[in-house]
């Protein structure tokens, strides 16, 4: 098992750096402001991380094989609108239906990308436009509050089994499923191989296009899930709900140590990356960083974290 583990992760030291960074940050904030280290605060941080992580997990699939998905915030917003509309009409069926829409948008991006051979940056941006337009039309540019009847269906999101917000469990479930997909299934293996050497993977008889379409579908599907969770927590859907989440999600992926050019990294690392992002955000408020200066600190931490976590041995030319 140890052998298999190092098989997946490559360098073990490299993999440990983000964890060390996370623990260091938590301790640092805890020393400066001991109230940060209470169970309640940490649970809040983790609950806040869950949606960010789920979005980031989706992008991780795409980044692993060397692409990028810029459509996730639009997909998350659309799904919040869809859930809000559908809950009153079809009850629990609203959730699978919304997830399905998410998967389909992702599959659309993927197919256009591999068939028309257009860079993923452009394709997913275009998909983003389409999806955002759909969200605006469906919601008539308004946020949709979910009525009392609908809220009953949302208890699996808002509940606190054993005193722990259920979104944390959902996030953990996604993390486990994602790690399983990446480490134990052919899809995960092929994704990493495509990111590290697409030509060789293709010439080994791997169905490269299929893996790509799966990755984009998963990415958008998880974005839809994140949208559903956000809707549940806010009890309303809105066409601009997730608009500020794309960048932090990408940041979480790269801070975790997944290479933006693909081939190295994974969902496990994204868990750490997302936690680092959340801890920095919440921690800054705790420590008393001027609210206006927070973004500066955040940007600087981002660059620093990447500078520390990035594995330079595998990159020959840095673009």
């Amino acid at each position: 098992m140890t052998a298999t583990k190092s098989l997946r992760a490559g360098g073990r030291v490299q993999a440990a750096i983000p964890i060390v960074l996370l623990i260091g940050l938590v301790i640092l904030i805890g020393v400066l402001q001991p109230s940060f280290l209470t169970a309640d605060t940490l649970l809040v941080v983790m609950a806040d991380t869950a949606t960010l992580f789920i979005l980031a997990a989706g992008i991780t699939f795409v980044v692993m094989l060397g692409g990028i998905d810029l459509s996730i915030q639009a997909v998350a917003s659309l799904s919040s609108v869809l859930v809000a509309i559908w809950l009153g009409r079809i009850g629990y069926w609203a959730f699978p239906a919304t997830l399905l829409v998410g998967f389909i948008t992702g599959a659309f991006s993927g197919v256009v990308h591999v068939r028309l051979r257009i860079p993923s940056f452009i394709v997913t941006l275009a998909t983003s436009g389409l999806v955002a337009a759909a969200a605006l039309l469906l919601s008539q540019e308004r946020s949709i509050t979910i009525g009392e009847a609908g809220r009953a269906y949302l208890s699996w999101i808002t509940g606190r089994p054993f005193g722990v917000p259920s979104v944390i469990f959902i996030g953990a479930l996604v993390a486990c499923a994602g790690i399983w997909l990446q480490c134990y299934t052919p899809f995960g293996r092929y994704s990493a191989a495509i990111g590290a050497g697409e030509a060789a993977t293709w010439a080994s008889g791997v169905k490269v296009n299929r893996q790509k379409v799966i990755a984009y579908s998963l990415s958008a599907g998880l974005a839809a899930l994140a949208g559903i969770l956000l809707t549940g927590r806010l009890s309303s859907g809105s066409p601009t709900l997730a608009n500020e989440l794309l960048l932090p999600a990408i940041a979480a992926v790269v801070v975790g140590g997944t290479s933006i050019t693909g081939g190295a990294g994974g969902i496990g690392r994204t868990v750490i990356g997302a936690l680092i992002i959340s801890v920095v955000r919440v921690g800054m408020t705790f420590v008393g960083v001027d609210i206006f200066a927070q973004q500066i600190v955040f940007g600087a931490v981002l660059i620093l974290a990447v500078a520390i976590t990035i594995d330079r041995t595998k990159i020959l030319i840095v673009k």
Binding site: I303, V318, K319
Partner: peptide, 10 residues
């Protein structure tokens, strides 16, 4: 030697 994507994102 950090990819421009991440530097400029920060």
């Amino acid at each position: 030697r950090i990819p421009s994507f991440m530097v400029t994102l920060g």
